[in-house]
């Protein structure tokens, strides 16, 4: 009941208060959109880490493949943008299948293998000139349409769109986590033998998480392409599409559904609005220190830490 209320209030704030109060400030809206973009990838990354037990350094590949797939479908084949974005997710999911041999690898070896895959996709985007425009990239990628009277190409519209995408993904993540699949996945990390012996196809389940995570990342990558209307391989496959989401997820709490999104908002907005103002060059350093501090103070991330504090508060209030 209380939980429902929190969700309801958060939704009203997110869809109502934010556009009403900040809608006229283009710069701030752009930052929030960028933060949610990173948050979406962070959520997808954390789903793979938390449920699949896999640490990926290659999510930039899925982001880039999603962006290119969608852009090419719209520019060359005149697909409607929103449909092409879904196809971008599918493209990234298909690309993730190519990384599956790496699933046999454990721990850091998987992380490294998928990092290598990321570079392969970037090189492909540079070399497949006729399809992708090569290193020069693609210009004038069409933006979002108007849907139900809302111009999604406006800042407020794009914000509502990425917010909706992230919420849908969080809902899907929660659904998976609560299912018996989610239970099996949670148990798999520490008790792989125990799960296999009762019939859990652990490698298949991990693979499924990889595909879902790649799909989500691809959709967010596609969103980004149509929002900034431009793509080149250096940008679409930039390692920051891997690094920032990882930082956000770890900062916010990668084993929770909302932690990564919260982490992205806090980390990105504080970095851009506060630290960048205070020290235009080198503000990333502060960000690094912040992340380091978080790992030491609350290794499970911000959200679990807040949970602990609010419980303490409640028990103090009750005493």
């Amino acid at each position: 009941m209380k939980h429902r209320m929190v969700v309801l209030v958060a939704l009203v704030l997110a869809y109502g208060a934010v556009p009403l109060l900040l809608g006229s400030m283009d710069y701030v809206m752009s930052l929030i959109i960028a933060a949610l973009t990173i948050g979406g990838v962070a959520l997808a990354w954390a789903l793979l880490g938390n449920l699949g037990g896999l640490v990926s350094f290659g999510h930039a590949a899925f982001f880039g493949v999603g962006a290119y797939t969608s852009a090419i479908l719209v520019v060359d084949h005149h697909w409607p943008v929103l449909l092409a974005m879904v196809a971008g997710g599918v493209g990234a999911a298909v690309a993730s299948v190519a990384t599956m041999p790496a699933l046999r690898l454990r721990g850091p070896y998987f992380a490294l293998a998928i990092l290598a895959y990321g570079h392969i996709f970037r090189i492909l985007a540079v070399e497949a000139t006729s399809l992708t425009g090569g290193a020069a990239g693609m210009l004038s990628i069409p933006g979002f349409p108007t849907l139900l009277g809302i111009n999604l190409a406006s800042k407020t519209g794009a914000y509502a769109l990425i917010l909706t995408i992230v919420l849908l993904f969080a809902w899907l993540y929660g659904l998976i986590r609560r299912s018996t699949y989610g239970l099996a996945l949670r148990a798999m990390h520490d008790s792989e033998l125990a799960t296999r012996v009762v019939g859990v196809p652990s490698t298949h389940l991990k693979a499924a998480m990889l595909v879902i995570s790649a799909f989500m990342t691809g959709v967010v990558g596609a969103f980004n392409a149509h929002q900034i209307n431009f793509l080149d391989p250096e940008y679409a496959f930039a390692s920051s599409w891997t690094v920032l989401p990882i930082a956000a997820a770890i900062f916010g709490g990668y084993r929770t559904v909302w932690g990564p999104v919260l982490g992205a908002l806090v980390v990105f907005l504080v970095d851009q609005l506060v630290f960048k103002e205070l020290m235009p060059s080198g503000h990333q350093l502060v960000f690094g220190v912040l992340l380091g501090g978080m790992v030491i103070l609350g290794p499970h991330g911000l959200l679990p830490l807040l949970g602990r504090w609010s419980k303490k508060e409640a028990s103090h209030a009750g005493a």
Binding site: T180, L183, A187, V198, G199
Partner: peptide, 19 residues
């Protein structure tokens, strides 16, 4: 070999669902 992080019943649920 209990499945860690799960309750007793959840252990059985996973075994039943998949096995």
């Amino acid at each position: 070999q209990p499945m860690r992080e799960l309750t007793v019943r959840e252990n059985l649920r996973v075994a039943q669902r998949f096995g």
